[in-house]
Design a protein around this nucleic acid. Structure first.
Lengths: 227, 227
DNA sequence: TACATGAGGTAACACATGTTACCGAAATCA
DNA sequence: TGATTTCGGTAACATGTGTTACCTCATGTA
């Protein structure tokens, strides 16, 4: 393994607390492979056997759930140095429940399951990190489940905008996606999202101009989220 | 810890591969508490701090997601000797994303997080089991997500009946729940389920009489599931 | 300049499910 | 036995989202 790659891994949540030198040392005795994929390719699709942990060294990947007809719901966007599908690596059914699509050129390191076990046994930080990362994913997915079941598209949109405003520390925010990608993120059809955008603007909650959004009535939005 | 309790734990998926004697020995050096809860009580509710792994020694518990107005979606039914919320134990946000409701009188053992880490470090079986159990939950929840998003109530009902028929090895099956509980399981309102039951009967897919269901057109049902 | 293309708004209609209310049958209880 | 409760079917209507089709606008291109 190259020094660069060890640095990236050492900065990942999975190896937090472990120096890049130690990462290098650990990986001197475990097998791994490094691969690259071009932008917009399906790295792995649902049903593929997943028996090596893949960690992003570079680039972005989205995890998507699809139905037979090709409708897509984005579950999550993953950026280097995140791990892919960490939560399901050790499941009895060792096939991927999601499809992984590259959002940019990516570089990925694959580490066999058995080596993950060894790492977990030999290094307490790694063990803790693995536990934590898996559990965080679980929390995330359960929250998705709640949102999917109990919140309307309008609420999803509003809470998304609020969270961005929080992150960007401003009432005027820049959406990172176009309408079509946003619709996929919320798991709805584009015209449905479009309709709801018009509604929140009509209701005076915010103004929208392309990817630029300005929050006008934060309290109103918060009230909506509590319905 | 009593011999009985060690036997139960040793038979649980989390301690599979570990003898009940060894369980006794392990638990001689780690702290734990045992509690009982009456039927139909909320053992823990969403937002409660979850920092001890709870394992059912006796009885049944359901994990539910609720909204503000009290609408409920059952996520899962857990029976002794399953673990509760194992997937989120180590999350950075250490609060429960679900509510746990007892379905019978239950007895539960609680084991602090830190002891779980120790167990995982000292016993390879436990480590593997913990990984596997967490990952299985993840797979389960992602599958829930897919069903929730992409399948209609009719499809949920049909695939549920098919899976029961598979389990009970018969075309005539006995539903384990009444209509109201079933509706909660599918996360829909009772009249909606009722309507769909009538539809599948009208369409000749199955006949239903209370909790007794007979599959009449397996091929038709399978075709429906592929839509 | 004229044309093609893609993003995104909109309108009409379809469809699944929720909501509320009501009813009857079965089970339970006084 | 009669009264009460529970379960579950049904009907009417509301609501949210999907589907399709069309339009406009901006941008890129021959």
């Amino acid at each position: 393994m190259l020094k660069d790659e060890a640095n990236i891994l050492a900065a990942s949540p999975l190896f937090s607390g472990i120096s890049s030198d130690l990462v290098l040392e650990l990986f001197s005795s475990i097998p791994f492979t490094i691969k690259t994929y071009p932008k917009d390719s399906m790295m792995m699709i649902r049903g593929d056997v997943y028996d090596e942990l893949k960690v992003l060294l570079n680039g972005e990947v989205s995890a998507e759930i699809q139905d037979f007809t090709g409708k897509v719901m984005k579950v999550e966007n993953l950026k280097a140095p995140d791990s892919l599908a960490i939560g399901i690596l050790f499941a009895d059914d060792n096939t991927l429940p999601v499809t992984l699509v590259t959002q940019s050129d990516v570089k990925v390191i694959s580490i066999p399951k058995s080596s993950i076990v060894k790492l977990a046994q030999s290094n307490q930080f790694f063990l803790q990190n693995f536990f934590t990362q898996s559990a965080n994913k679980m929390t995330f997915v359960v929250e998705k489940l709640r949102l999917l079941k109990f919140s309307s598209l309008k609420q999803k949109l509003c809470s998304y905008v609020l969270s961005l405003s929080d992150k960007q520390q401003s009432e005027t925010i820049q959406l990172p996606y176009n309408r079509e990608q946003l619709a996929a993120l919320f798991g709805v059809a584009r015209p449905s999202l479009s309709r709801v955008c018009s509604e929140v603007v009509d209701q005076g909650f915010m103004s929208m101009d392309g990817k630029k959004v300005t929050i006008l009535d934060k309290e109103g939005i918060k009230a909506l989220l509590k319905e």
